[in-house]
Design a protein around this nucleic acid. Structure first.
Lengths: 121, 121
DNA sequence: TTAGTATATGAGCATATATTCATATAAGGT
DNA sequence: ACCTTATATGAATATATGCTCATATACTAA
């Protein structure tokens, strides 16, 4: 597309081009970033873990996280917009649950990584 | 520890307690959040992908991301502090590479997730 | 229909994050 | 020694994020 490479100091132009081509294999890169961002907040990560195997309503989650229900609602909205959780209404109560177990897979891999990293410390 | 649950409106106290116990199985939760955060930025994610199978120096990465070398350096420092990448000096040039392939595993799982999510759209 | 409960949402504020710019460090070439 | 190159880093600024508070919505009960 653009050729601003010419204006720039590049030591290994071949590698840059190869890397650029490699990145083309990841057109969903921004969406991946958004997914990682969704679970990067400790509160939202706790929500995801809490909903693994359990339906919970917003006020339960607020109690679990020790934040206001408004804050919990704002956080779960982000997870909902990312299609990580969905809800089911029963009267006045909205029960939240994980959409599927893809997220938990991601979380398990992350936990393995962290355990490996902190093993030798 | 604390009992501020009593001060709070909770619909399903049993579930909150079960979720709380479940969270105890994830003492590395904050570290997992930090890991997710590290790869949540599109620039850093591109760096990780670029370094999958290739050593690259900072100015190469800056060219790839189309940012200043300073910005690239700041970003790679975060990955370095997270022990996701390490470098090797050859003269004036620092060659960066992935510490291991744990991160790429995480990235692949995220890509699968994103593909599943966007399949029916 | 009026009141109460559960949740959602918008605006405003405080904090966090990413970039830029200036400067520092570390190595190589002359 | 001196200058250049490659990278790192601190401070300042701009943007993003998360929380609070006030208000809106959706449902229930009386």
């Amino acid at each position: 597309m653009n050729q601003e490479l010419c204006e720039r100091r590049v030591i290994h132009e071949d590698r840059v081009h190869k890397a650029r081509e490699h990145l083309l294999h990841y057109p969903e890169l921004d969406a991946m970033g958004d997914l990682f961002k969704a679970v990067s907040d400790p509160g939202r990560l706790k929500i995801v873990l809490a909903l693994a195997g359990r339906e919970m309503c917003v006020c339960d989650l607020a109690a679990l996280l020790d934040v206001t229900e408004s804050a919990a609602s704002h956080q779960i909205r982000i997870l909902r917009n990312m299609n990580l959780v969905k809800n089911r209404r029963d009267g006045q109560v909205l029960y939240y649950r994980l959409v599927d177990d893809h997220v938990m897979h991601l979380v398990r891999v992350a936990r393995e990584h962290v355990r490996e990293l902190t093993k030798g410390r």
